[in-house]
Each structure stands twice: as C-alpha cells, then as structure tokens.
Amino acid sequence: MNKPLLTVGLTLSLLVPLCAQAGAKEDFQKIYSDAKSAQKDAGDFKWTTTSSRLKAAESAAESGDYDKAKTLAAEALKLAQESVDQRKTQAEAWRKAVIGG
C-alpha cells in the first residue's frame, strides 16, 4: 500500500469541497455586490422582491451556505436589473398614460 499517495488522496478529497466552498463564497460576493449596486441604481423604483432575495442571500451566507446564497443573489441581481430597466423606460413612458395627454 502506498502510504504517501493515500495521504495525498485523502488530503485532496478533503480540500476539494473546501475549494469549491471558497469559490462559491467569492462568486456569491461578486454577484451580491452587483445586485446591491443594481438595486441602488433602481432609485425609487426598487422592488420588494429584490430586497427580500438580498436579505435571504445575506442570511444564507451568514450560515455558510454559499451555494444557496449565490443562487439567491443571482435572482436578486436579475430582479434589480429589471427594475432599473423599468425606471429608465418609465422616465418617458409615464407621459403616455396621463389623462388628456
């Protein structure tokens, strides 16, 4: 039996999930900060659904579940981007709805 190889193998098998974990954490942090800044960009067109995803992402991250946190942050990012689009569209579109307009 090759002891050193076994040790390497064991160490690797322990390290791999840790690495994945570290990657997920960084991925989460990037997406989360993008989502936060998109939400800010939405100004007074923020959606409550974005806010709740952001909160849920934070608490998932706090409990160390970065995969879940990442998924939630990605959802928040998508919603926030849609609300930014809404803000931009409405900057002119509102006029068409005005009575007598």
């Binding site: 067109f45 959606w47 659904t49 809404q86 409405q90 579109a93 509102w94 709805a97």
Partner: peptide, 17 residues
C-alpha cells in the same frame, strides 16, 4: 403615472384606468 414594482402597475393603472 409611472409604473412600478414587479407587477409593473402605476397608481393610474388602478385608480385612473
């Protein structure tokens, strides 16, 4: 008159239209 929120409604969507 501006549409807001995920449901994309303005005050007017409900109270004017």
């Amino acid at each position: 008159y501006s549409r807001r929120g995920q449901l994309n409604f303005s005050c007017a969507s409900c109270h004017v239209q």
